[in-house]
Design a protein around this nucleic acid. Sequence first.
DNA 1: CGACATATTGAGATCCATCAACCAATGTGG
DNA 2: CCACATTGGTTGATGGATCTCAATATGTCG
Lengths: 187, 187
Amino acid sequence: MNYLDTIQQYINNLPQEVHQALKEASTIRRYKKGDLLLQQGEVCQRSFHLLTGIARKYYLNEGKEITTEIYFQNDLALSFESYVLQKPGREYIEALTDIEVSATPFNAFRALRKQFPALMELDVMLSEYYAIWLEQRLFQFYTLSATERYRAILEKSPQLIQHIPLTMLASYLGISLETLSRIRAKI
Amino acid sequence: MNYLDTIQQYINNLPQEVHQALKEASTIRRYKKGDLLLQQGEVCQRSFHLLTGIARKYYLNEGKEITTEIYFQNDLALSFESYVLQKPGREYIEALTDIEVSATPFNAFRALRKQFPALMELDVMLSEYYAIWLEQRLFQFYTLSATERYRAILEKSPQLIQHIPLTMLASYLGISLETLSRIRAKI
DNA sequence: CGACATATTGAGATCCATCAACCAATGTGG
DNA sequence: CCACATTGGTTGATGGATCTCAATATGTCG
């Protein structure tokens, strides 16, 4: 069982009152395809639990968009550093389809974390999971060529290739659109 | 003030009894230059708080060492995924000089975390800090050339260049030793 | 259908890796 | 104290991976 499943199970087993409190602190929001949930320069004041649809996180570098994370159903979308430090960040979060999210304000979750130690522990687990995910991405940049990174996506996250434009996938892989196109032609 | 200072302050302000409990759970260890604190395939069962000296974390890829983190005084050394999941990992931790560490077993810290909620919160902060650090490293691979990454180290972490061999620095930057040598010759 | 976004293909340039030779500093056994 | 091995770093030549720019093709949606 991977860590994400462990976390999911942990959430499922939380007492009813904690679920209730979380629900009360959150609001359901709907966004249209193309809408921005967060913009560069803003403080990420809420986390977005994606209920339906697809979204992504990206930032601009020399005028180009670099996609850093793709969110599917049940993923938690937020700009990590901006959220944790509550200071303006450089990242955008964009709806890639019409989406539905449960948005939980930073302050509200902070308060709940204090009230329910189980949520503090959940917070540890989520941060740990994100750090492990980042380590794996970094590991891939160290050890794999562009083609190998694409193949890794093919095998481990095919839903990613099926649902997002190649332009975004290329920047996610850290390569140019043209190179990605050539890699695909060869395979 | 950066997040690391915030965390340090938080630690300093912990109640005396918590400091005492942490101290009792930990043991001071000394290693000689070249000694391994952790080997590939082992479970990282303790965290190492570096009291004096320098250490590094690395792994092997196709026979070559890739250094992923350098530790100086007061840094916390551990193989993150292996530690969190308590499963065998691929990383080594090596003393680059004679060092002195305070080693805290995973299980002991777990127990203390449960006993003192303040330590659970500290654990969140440490994981958050590590994730932010990883995000920054990943950001550099996305946006900077080899030369620019070297310059970034020069400006932000000169102590790193002064104390570790170029071979390790090159792998840390994700480039070959020869390329690093040429970059240095040009600057 | 037309317009705009998305993807492919080609040619040339650039960055960086690899392989190999060489050099300097340090350490070790005799 | 010397001879030699070892480690760490430099330099040169060459090739490959990937980028950029530009032209063309394909798709999609009002």
